[in-house]
Design a binder for these strands. Structure first.
Lengths: 337, 337
DNA sequence: ACAGTTCGTCGAATCGATTCGACGCCTCGG
DNA sequence: CCGAGGCGTCGAATCGATTCGACGAACTGT
């Protein structure tokens, strides 16, 4: 069931079948129909490996995701979903590589051997070995997130520093004087995970600018950790009346801990943050937050990658988004004590 | 940077390089080292497309997931994660196809053109066109879930009918006489989605066996729908003291609606169900539920698929799991009225 | 009427690997 | 001392597509 078989049955040469299919040279309408009839009858589809070998491209994109074992956040899921969808729209397949570590078989398999035409990388660290590795290989790639020195790299990111600072300013405007930052996990901070560090910087700057009392905490990426994090915060820092966070996965736990402490939002306590819309709207009351536009970011990442694949030597482009803060119901005037 | 280049630099023929790499014929140790040195220096990796073309296999599995646009449930995520992980352990890549509909470009692209060695399908309907299509092509595949007539198909599933019946019996033992079933969405039921129908059957059977009053409801797969579903239930069926569900995504909404109605679990109301462990433990109080062993199921699906790829004519096998119900805190004796 | 196009088709080369048959060399046994 | 057999290597065929150059037929213009 290969192109030769089709050619034989249609009584033409293999090249004619190929041209009939691709339209790269004219083929008589009658011949074309005869070929198409045979193809339909046999259900023929060109062998992808042979095409990839000859054309030098696989029509496949690599998507490097965090190790599958750990639960993905809503934001990460949003990226995966939009990348997969954008790729499908462009008639491209997506090859998954669950790779967190640096020397990873799966990652190497995907990027070497010309298995994909390009790669999208997420969960970027300030210093990221995978980025270095990709630069060595010369394979086109785009990152969602950016390294400390993103020169010569295509990327898409959200401006965590500015966004978290805006959250702090918003809370300061409402009269809050002591604000806590609930960051991602201590491990991620230690590993140099970009958003965690940029958030820290943006928070510190805004706290200083408004002469506030700032508390910074790290919190593992799950509900239970969020719960204990808030418990500890309420115990050790009674003066705190508001918190900002980028830790989506901790939100359900944060909510439960506040409920148990009989703190009503936003009368007794305010929370704001940066999160996927789904997480923000799942919070009760709904979370005042900068909604990370995962759909747009994933789509743009694919677009940038396709451009880069088409013209690898073109100057690199990037996209730094600062989505507006959606004022929902979780922030209000500071309580009077 | 192909095998010829390596051969030239190592001063041997291409076949010798190939044999040195595969070990399928003896190669002198000294020659082997010379070749390896060149390979390391140039960072050579064999071209995957050429290998796939010659060997007739791609070392890639296809994974058909629900359309990326809709949020995946915890259970679906669990399947994806464990399939990807199991594939990685077997040094296989995973190609994603977001295909819910029946005539889908992405699905066709993945299964035709010999792009993958086998396919794993999830979210199976009682009559599923994708299954029919795969049977036509002869491509090895395994389903997570099973069709109405699963003869001659490899599959892995959880016994929804039995599990939901056990939940009902458990509640009946606790004295509940009126029990509601919160099923998946009406659309899924209409589309012939297997678990929804089998749950319905198991529920009806258990209700009859214990001479109970059973209410069946459908509920879209999101928190908001869960909320309105419970509100409506409490309004229209005041006699109901317990519910069983397979709708994970509705759980957060169910929880909120019960809280708002000032019903304490399990004193005033009981809930049990079938869910991924993560969802069950995320519920407050923790949900008495049959924990769907997503890790085991995904892993088994990959194992079955690999067997099938290795020996396509072997008799089909399947796995129907009935995990025990974990008694947690969401079920208790029926309230006395 | 004839040279120059254009059109439709074909044969052969090519992409980068694997693998089969062959061949030379060395060793060992009779 | 010579034939058998094993070892290490090589050349060529092959997988299934694309694509280039060529070629005959029909068509155009002078």
């Amino acid at each position: 069931m290969n192109i030769g078989e089709i050619a034989r049955r249609a009584g033409v040469s293999r090249s004619t079948v190929s041209y009939a299919l691709s339209g790269k040279r004219p083929v008589t309408e009658e011949t074309k129909q005869r070929i198409q009839a045979v193809i339909d009858e046999l259900g023929y589809r060109p062998n992808a490996a042979a095409q990839a070998l000859k054309e030098g491209r696989t029509r496949t994109l690599g998507l490097v995701i965090p190790p599958a074992s750990q639960r993905l956040t809503d934001m990460q899921l949003g990226f995966v979903a939009s990348v997969v969808e954008a790729a499908a729209r462009a008639d491209l397949d997506v090859l998954l590589s669950p790779s967190g570590g640096d020397h990873d078989r799966s990652f190497e398999r995907v990027i070497s051997g010309r298995r994909v035409d390009g790669v999208i990388l997420m969960e970027i660290r300030l210093e990221d070995e995978r980025v270095v590795r990709l630069q060595q290989t010369g394979l086109p790639f785009v990152t969602i997130g950016h390294t400390a020195n993103p020169h010569g790299i295509c990327w898409v990111d959200v401006d965590y520093a500015t966004l978290i600072a805006r959250c702090v300013h918003h809370l300061a405007d409402l009269g809050h004087r002591s604000i806590a930052l609930i960051n991602r996990s201590a491990e991620l901070v230690a590993a140099g995970y970009g958003p965690a560090h940029r958030t820290l910087a943006g928070f510190a700057e805004a706290i200083t600018a408004r002469s506030l009392n700032g508390i910074t905490l790290t919190c593992a990426d799950d509900a239970a950790a969020g719960e204990t994090c808030i418990e500890q915060l309420l115990e050790e820092h009674r003066e705190v009346t508001a918190a900002v966070t980028i830790n989506e996965s901790a939100l359900p736990g944060i909510q439960r801990a506040l409920e148990r402490a009989k703190l009503n939002l936003p009368q007794d306590f305010s929370i704001a943050g940066v999160a996927a819309q789904h997480s923000a709207e799942g919070f009760r009351p709904q979370l005042t937050a900068a909604d990370v536009p995962t759909l747009e970011m994933g789509t743009s990442a694919v677009d940038l990658l396709l451009e880069r694949i088409a013209a690898p030597e073109t100057p690199t482009r990037h996209l730094l988004l600062t989505p507006p803060i959606s004022l929902r119901a979780s922030t209000g005037p500071a309580p009077i004590r």
